[in-house]
Computed example of a mutant assay.
Amino acid sequence: NIFYWYVMAFYKRMDHIVVVNPTFIEKLVALGVKRDKITYIPNFVTKTQFHPLPLEQKQTLRQQFGIDQEAFVVLGVGQIQERKGIWDFIALARENPQWTFVWVGGFSFGSITAGYDELKKVLADPPANLKFPGIVDRAVINGYYNVADVFLLPSYSELFPMSALEAFSTGTPTVLRDLDLYRAIIDGYYLPAKDKADMQQELATLAIDSDLRQRLSEQALAASERYSADYVAGIWQKFYTEQAALGKR
């Protein structure tokens, strides 16, 4: 169609294309873009905004957020929409009243959001153990990552898992739906779950295994170094240097 040919003409006019996810490379090659014109450079998370907090501050934040100090807290972050797997998150909350679930985010697309009417009903009357604080400031969301015992993202599709990287930067153990996208970028740093039943099992294990939570926290912080501003800036510097050298030939 006309749109397809317009997009392809646009891509092919570029001297070089930088993608934020390596899984996009094969798709572009299949569309006719030369492989040597494509480079993968990831997004990054700023550690001045997302970082671990001291235990005392976490306790204070739990009090401010209305979360019991002894609660096992499962955090989700993102737009409230079906693509994010929000219904699995809600179902897990209903099936596990012994845990506290928090979803930070709102209806970025308003009433045109898929499932808007039904989701609004849940937000108006959520289970007692499920909190929806809405869209919050980035400084505040760092606090939510820190008070969580686990970050759970049940999303069915993502362009780049920024919220997972934010969780990594705070050292929060992470469970993600098992997607090719994540395996290509952050494999080994999180627990994969193919469906809600798997998510239930991983959460149940994490709720009682503090050693596993500690190991995942350490892995998350290690992963965050690969997606820090300084590290990614180094990748960009190398890329620009190489491109400048090619341009002089």
Rank of each mutant, 00 (worst) to 15 (best):
G134V: 02
I135Q: 08
I135T: 06
V136R: 05
V136P: 04
D137I: 01
D137F: 05
R138G: 07
A139M: 11
A139H: 12
I141V: 15
I141R: 09
G143Q: 00
Y144T: 11
V147F: 09
A148G: 12
L152K: 06
L153Q: 15
P154T: 06
P154W: 08
P154N: 08
P154Q: 03
S155W: 10
S155D: 01
S157G: 14
E158L: 02
F160W: 13
F160T: 06
F160Q: 05
F160P: 09
M162G: 10
S163Q: 12
L165C: 06
L165V: 03
E166K: 12
E166T: 06
T170Q: 08
T170E: 07
T170G: 12
G171M: 02
T172H: 04
T172S: 07
T172K: 00
T172M: 07
P173M: 07
P173S: 04
L176M: 05
D178F: 02
L179G: 00
D180K: 11
Y182V: 07
Y182R: 00
Y182W: 06
Y182F: 13
R183H: 10
R183Q: 10
I185H: 11
G188C: 00
G188W: 08
Y190S: 02
L191F: 13
L191I: 15
P192M: 02
P192Q: 01
A193H: 05
D195V: 08
D195W: 06
D195H: 01
A197I: 13
M199F: 14
Q201A: 15
Q201C: 07
Q201G: 08
E202K: 14
E202V: 15
A204K: 13
A204S: 14
A207H: 14
A207G: 11
I208N: 15
I208R: 15
D209F: 01
L212I: 10
L212P: 00
R213C: 15
Q214L: 15
Q214W: 12
L216C: 06
E218C: 10
E218F: 06
A220P: 05
A220Q: 07
L221K: 11
L221Q: 07
A223N: 00
A223C: 10
E225G: 04
Y227C: 00
S228N: 03
S228L: 05
A229V: 13
D230R: 12
D230C: 00
I235N: 09
W236M: 01
K238S: 11
F239K: 00
F239Y: 04
A244H: 05
A245P: 08
L246D: 09
L246A: 06
G247H: 13
K248R: 13
